[in-house]
């Protein structure tokens, strides 16, 4: 039983880290700026998972106080991640506004084309 529980725990972390690395790979390897931003938000959501996962207690319930329950999952990471989600969408909006401006100025959202135009100028 404990071996099984350990395996499940590792599986959670492995998937979280896979998502994190996929986000990192998209940000570094893909030239399109919109796709880079989506990669960034995938990285962000993997961090949400990384915070929420240790807060879960098996057999616990959502942290809303009720006489029927005694074990609650940890509310602190939930609060931190609520803030992180909202800040994340704010940065996403700002990044998209920058992309729109770059597109107006250069006529493209591909990173290497922008660099090429910079070199010509």
């Amino acid at each position: 039983m404990s071996a099984l529980a350990e395996l499940v725990g590792r599986y959670n972390y492995v998937i979280t880290i896979f998502l994190m690395m996929a986000g990192l790979y998209i940000v570094v390897a893909r030239g399109n700026l919109v796709k880079k931003l989506i990669g960034l938000s995938i990285f962000q959501t993997s961090v949400y998972l990384l915070y929420i996962e240790p807060g879960k207690i098996v057999g616990g319930t959502a942290p809303i106080i009720d006489p029927a329950f005694t074990v609650y999952s940890n509310p602190l990471p939930h609060v931190l991640i609520l803030t992180a989600i909202v800040v994340g969408v704010a940065t996403l909006a700002l990044g998209l506004a920058l992309v729109v401006r770059i597109n107006e100025a250069y006529g493209t959202t591909e990173e290497d084309e922008i660099l090429g135009k910079d070199r010509e100028a």
Binding site: G9, N12, Y13, V58, N74
Partner: peptide, 20 residues
Amino acid sequence: LPPFGSPDGVIHGHVAPRYI
């Protein structure tokens, strides 16, 4: 890291029980 779902991880020891 502590195994998934265990109630004795470090994260459950600090201010969270006091909040609850």
